[in-house]
Computed example of a mutant assay.
Amino acid sequence: MFSEDKVMDTESKAVMMAWERPLMEAHAKAICSGGGHILNIGFGMGLVDTAIQQYKPLSHTIVEAHPEVYGRMLQNGWGEKENVKIIFGRWQDVLSQLESYDGIFFDTYGEYYEDMREFHQHLPQLLKPEGIYSFFNGLCGGNPFFHVVYCQLVALELDNLGYSTQLIPLPVKDCLGEETWEGVKHKYWQLDTYYLPVCQSIDDSE
Rank of each mutant, 00 (worst) to 15 (best):
G141P: 10
Q152F: 05
S96M: 10
Y113E: 01
Q92S: 15
L156E: 14
K173N: 05
G142S: 05
L161Q: 02
D159C: 05
G110K: 07
F119S: 08
N137A: 11
C175T: 14
K128Q: 13
P124S: 13
E118W: 05
R90L: 06
F119Q: 09
V184H: 04
L167C: 06
V154L: 12
D115Q: 09
Q152E: 08
R117N: 04
D159Y: 07
P144L: 13
K185S: 04
P171A: 10
G177H: 01
D174H: 04
Y133I: 06
N160C: 05
K187V: 06
Q125D: 15
G177W: 03
H186E: 03
E182W: 10
L167D: 06
K187R: 12
C151V: 03
L123C: 06
E178K: 07
T180F: 03
P144Q: 13
N137C: 14
A155R: 00
G141S: 03
C151R: 12
A155T: 08
V172F: 11
C140K: 11
G103C: 06
L123S: 10
V172Q: 05
Q166M: 05
E111P: 11
D93W: 09
Q152I: 03
G142N: 04
Q152W: 09
G177A: 00
V184I: 12
Q166T: 11
G162P: 09
Y113W: 05
T165I: 05
H122D: 09
H186N: 02
Y133C: 05
